[in-house]
Amino acid sequence: MIAVLIADDLPLQRLGFRMLLESQDDMTVVGEATGGSEAVRMTAELGPDVVLMDVRMPGLDGVEATRRIVASGGPGRVLILTTFDLDEYAFAGLRAGASGFLVKDAQPGDLLSGIRTVADGNAVVAPSLTRRLLDLYAHRFPVTGPDREPDPRLRSLTERERGVLLCIGQGYSNSEIAERLVLAESTVKTHVGRVLAKIGARDRVQAVIFAYDTGLVTPETR
């Protein structure tokens, strides 16, 4: 069973989510939080597999709640709910460590699929969409320059792994990376797994953000 915590300040929204999720044989709602602080506390107490997190809540918002949940080091993953797929909240949610985001008016099937995907340890949002989103807000990333100390995690990568990370950051799928680097797709999968482990990324979305953070990928990189 996938244990889900719903975090939303609107009672009708929470009720709708609960009814949908509990209609599934493989999901159960372990709790409902009405704000960010409560979501952080209940995540620590209940240990859900997935936190369905609204970003706009009074008091502690969903972005900061996501940051605290991820920083706690627990196994629970956060799925952000936002209004538009390329808005500032989606960007902030991914930067805070969310494993993906969905628009609030997503089809029920898309929401359920997203929860299952996150529970399996994968990212919901495609790397290509992450790339588009980060391009829009790249001016908020740390400034890179010759005087900035390179991230030691980047230095730990082999030349091949660095090339794979560059492709991930550019939004390419495994099959596209295999074609660009002239590798078998199974080999690419192995390299991707090693890259994620070395840089400490939970999924490909976080790997894309890491590539931007370290200056490996910029909006001009094509």
Rank of each mutant, 00 (worst) to 15 (best):
V103R: 10
L46V: 02
A98F: 15
D120M: 12
R77P: 02
I209T: 14
T34R: 10
L102Q: 05
R68Q: 15
S186T: 14
Q13R: 03
P152G: 11
G114H: 08
L157K: 01
T82Q: 10
V55N: 05
G59L: 12
T187C: 12
I115W: 03
G121A: 04
G114S: 08
I209G: 00
E220G: 05
L15R: 10
R160Q: 13
Q206A: 14
T83A: 15
L81K: 00
Y137R: 08
S113W: 08
I115D: 04
R194I: 01
E185R: 15
G47V: 01
R18Y: 03
P150I: 14
L129A: 13
R222T: 02
Q13L: 12
L136K: 12
P142G: 09
R77D: 07
A3N: 05
E88Q: 13
G114L: 13
R160V: 03
L112W: 03
G163V: 05
P127T: 12
A90P: 15
L12W: 06
A211P: 04
T190M: 09
P146D: 09
V55C: 09
I69P: 06
V4P: 02
A106W: 05
Y89E: 01
R116N: 08
G59T: 09
R56L: 06
E159T: 03
E88H: 15
L52K: 02
I69K: 00
I6M: 03
V40T: 06
T158H: 06
L183K: 13
F141T: 13
V4F: 04
T158S: 09
D147G: 13
L136Y: 01
L10V: 12
V195E: 08
L79Q: 09
G215S: 09
D8H: 01
D61T: 13
E38W: 04
V217C: 11
E220M: 09
I199S: 04
L157V: 04
M27E: 01
R67V: 07
G109S: 10
K104W: 08
G169I: 13
R18V: 05
R153W: 00
V188A: 00
D147K: 12
L94M: 15
V125F: 08
R131P: 00
P152A: 12
L20M: 09
R222L: 11
K189Y: 10
K198H: 12
P219I: 07
V195N: 02
V63E: 05
L79F: 09
A33C: 06
I2Q: 07
V30G: 01
H191N: 11
D213T: 15
T130C: 12
V50H: 02
S23W: 09
D49H: 07
I2Y: 03
Y172L: 05
E64D: 13
G93H: 01
L46C: 01
L46W: 04
V124Y: 15
T190Y: 12
V55R: 06
R162K: 13
L183F: 14
E45G: 03
D54I: 03
E38P: 03
L94Q: 11
L81S: 00
Q170G: 13
V78P: 00
T218Y: 06
A90T: 15
